[in-house]
């Protein structure tokens, strides 16, 4: 009975959306705001990756909000798990075999490097802070799955997370202090297609990359530690 109601509601929503979408052409090229970003984005921001310039510069306030959402989710997870009593710290974990352990020790810094490359060069190649941070966190996932017994240190995790967020907010406040508006791009735009170009965009993306990586690693740490 409940299934029939659910399927009926789903069918109504799908029919409604298809009726509405019929009046909207797919992939039209004369969108108002999109055109402006494509035409003016390169000179106004100096970044080669237009998606990055939209995410960090034109709509940077949304990115700050998204960072706060991720932070809230990670802290909420920590709050719910932290209300239990802490299990005893030194538990016997079964050691993984030699091949797996050596493979992890070899791969872990390589994956970290790939993740760091993605978020440092976010303004030139596809990628950016969130993508790079997720790759860094998957390196830590590899570490938890294979080199068992090594853990992320709690204090340094918190410090990295907080500093990442504060650097982002601080960059915005500098723009406010010099009188031109919050999140104004005040550093020089530099030469196109080099690493040190596009003003504050690489700095913000590096801060975001560190923050997201530390956050997701902390989430994994909370979950895996509780389940032993």
């Amino acid at each position: 009975m409940r299934r029939i109601i659910a399927i009926a509601l789903l069918a109504i929503i799908v029919m409604g959306i298809s009726l509405a979408v019929r009046e909207i052409p797919f992939g039209k090229t004369d969108t108002k705001v999109g055109e402006y970003y494509l035409n003016e984005g390169r000179e106004e921001t100096g970044a080669a990756n237009i998606v990055t310039s939209v995410v960090v510069n034109y709509r940077g306030f949304d990115t700050l909000g998204e960072i706060a959402v991720l932070f809230t989710a990670a802290i909420g997870l920590g709050a719910v798990f932290g209300s239990r009593k802490k299990r005893k710290v030194a538990e016997e974990v079964e050691k993984s075999s030699l091949i797996v352990y050596t493979g992890c020790r070899f791969l872990f810094p390589v994956i970290l490097l790939v993740g760091a490359y993605i978020f440092i060069y976010g303004h030139l190649t596809p990628g950016g802070g969130f993508q790079g941070g997720a790759v860094v966190a998957s390196a830590f996932l590899l570490m938890y799955l294979t080199c068992r017994g090594k853990r992320v240190r709690d204090k340094s995790n918190k410090v990295v997370e907080s500093l990442g967020g504060l650097i982002f907010v601080g960059m915005g406040l500098v723009g406010l202090v010099i009188g031109k508006g919050f999140l104004f791009n005040f550093l020089p735009k530099g030469e196109f297609l080099t690493l040190f170009s596009a003003g504050i965009i690489p700095i913000i993306y590096i801060a975001i990359g560190f923050k997201v990586g530390a956050e997701l690693a902390g989430v994994l740490d909370n979950l895996i530690e509780e389940s032993k």
């Binding site: 034109y58 940077g60 508006g181």
Partner: peptide, 10 residues
């Protein structure tokens, strides 16, 4: 925010 003018900024 960002020093641009709406609707191209927030």
């Amino acid at each position: 925010i960002g020093g641009f003018s709406p609707p191209f900024c927030i």
